[in-house]
């Protein structure tokens, strides 16, 4: 686990569930996890309509949007959200990640599709990273990869003061530890 980060590395993040997902312990835990590391969090809560997520991102212009979903509809609703979000010019460069239990097959690939294909589909549609509980190593490995991803982001003020470019990768995973 990474410790607290310095003030210049402090990210402004938005955490949200998807429109039809009622689960909220995942959101509570992710919020605490980000705050424990010194980041600032706005938690939009569960069953959040796409429009509200886009609205919050447009007003807050965060350094990172974290989508968390576990009810199994993440594949369908996650794709719908990211397509709408990338269509907004101001948000086309916003770093966005998604994670949780994304499909209802638990990695079993019951009908032949597995999480690798799902991750590829979500990334192709515009997510910067996908943290699927069903991937190799389970949820714990996903959270470790998420930590590394966080360390690779720098706040946008640290790159261009007030600028709108994508937060840039810094010295690599673990640099902020």
């Amino acid at each position: 686990m990474n410790g607290m980060i310095s003030a210049e590395r402090r990210l402004r993040t938005v955490v949200s569930g998807l429109s039809c997902d009622a689960h909220l312990w995942n959101l509570v835990c992710l919020r605490l996890l980000l705050e424990d590391r010194g980041h600032q969090v706005t938690n939009l809560g569960n069953t959040t309509p796409d429009a509200e997520i886009l609205g919050a991102c447009c007003t807050e212009l965060p350094d990172l949007l974290v989508i968390s979903t576990v009810n199994g509809h993440g594949r369908l609703d996650g794709l719908r959200l990211i397509r709408a979000l990338r269509a907004v010019p101001a948000l086309s460069g916003l770093p966005v990640v998604i994670g949780g239990k994304l499909g209802i097959e638990g990695g079993n690939g019951r009908d032949g599709r597995d999480h690798t294909e799902l991750a590829a589909q979500l990334t192709a549609a515009g997510y910067d990273a996908v943290f699927d509980d069903a991937a190799e190593g389970g949820p714990e490995a996903g959270l470790a990869r998420f930590d590394a991803f966080l360390s690779s982001l720098v706040p946008r003020q640290a790159t261009f003061a007030g600028g709108r470019s994508r937060a840039r990768a810094a010295a690599g995973p673990g640099a902020a530890a």
Binding site: S19, C20, D21, A22, T47, N71, G72, H73, L76, D77
Partner: peptide, 11 residues
């Protein structure tokens, strides 16, 4: 299912 629960009939 979650769509029906949330009245998202279209989905």
């Amino acid at each position: 299912d979650s769509y029906t629960r949330c009245h998202d009939d279209g989905a």
